[in-house]
Design a protein around this nucleic acid. Structure first.
Length: 257
DNA sequence: ATGGCTACGATCCGTAGA
């Protein structure tokens, strides 16, 4: 299975690029974030024509997530059960025996802000939810925009970013708490080139300077991690006209025989 | 100089992203 995640920053604006990427990359499952539109406006017809079904947890203007799949989608759950949240950031579904949790983790805005506190509360709720999911789904993947760069090697200029939101101690501790559940960062299962990022600021020619952060991740349960054969970031869509500021992150793993 | 884009939904600027 080829499983990918992509923050498209508006599905309406990015639909042509999304269809193009689906046609060339051919992922089996694609987790989408920042749809910025409600479910009725989700482009089902176009995606169906491309061979993809979709489970959507949409919202006007902000947030919004979806799971696309070439094979049938089952057991769809929107949000984190027991965690009341107006913001549509999570959707989960089962595809080919794999439990897929698509997440758009809060940005946090600035360390110490209300949004930062919300980010940390949200991560705590996610951790509890994933602990429960792991109990019932040994083949579990958590894919999305985590808005955390786990280590300094995931940051183009650690000195500039030191202590800032996305790299602060409490955020990285929240990330490590997910790993402590037994989840693995698929990207780090393999030897990787240096300076691989998944997000680049639209300003200051961020992409041209490769001034980025690796904040989009695919986490795998131990069983899926053992079956994982590759994990990459595809920079190609970020080079197009009118790109999303994020690039797709991908993990591939074999099916059990 | 704490900015610089981009998307959205409201107007012709404010909010949010990261």
């Amino acid at each position: 299975m080829k499983l990918a995640t992509w923050n498209v920053n508006s599905i309406k604006v990015r639909l042509p690029q999304l269809l193009e990427w689906l046609a060339t990359a051919r992922p089996d499952v694609l987790c989408l974030q920042e749809l910025k539109s409600e479910e009725p406006k989700f482009p089902r017809a176009e995606l169906d024509a491309a061979g993809y079904a979709g489970a959507v947890n949409g919202q006007k203007t902000y947030n919004g997530v979806a799971i696309l799949s070439r094979t049938p989608i089952a057991e769809v759950v929107a949000g984190i059960p027991g965690f009341a949240d107006e913001q549509k950031r999570v959707i989960a579904a089962t595809v080919q025996g794999v439990r897929v949790v698509c997440v758009y983790c809060p940005n946090g805005q600035a360390v110490g802000s209300d949004k930062y506190e919300y980010k940390l509360r949200w991560f705590a709720a996610l951790k509890d939810h994933l602990a429960a999911e792991l109990g019932s789904h040994p083949r579990l993947a958590v894919a999305g925009d985590f808005n955390v760069a786990p280590e300094d090697r995931d940051v183009h200029d650690p000195k500039v970013w030191e202590g800032q939101v996305h790299v602060s101690g409490p955020e990285r501790a929240a990330w490590r708490a997910l790993l402590a559940l037994g989840l693995k960062d698929s990207f780090r299962l393999f030897e990787q080139p240096e300076k691989v990022y998944s997000w680049w600021d639209y300003r200051m020619m961020g992409f041209r300077r490769n001034a980025g952060l690796r904040i989009d991740h695919v986490l795998l349960s131990e069983e899926l991690a053992r079956a994982c054969t590759a994990s990459t970031v595809d920079k190609a869509p970020r080079k197009l006209e009118r790109p999303s500021d994020h690039a797709p992150a991908i993990a591939e793993f074999t099916s059990p025989r």
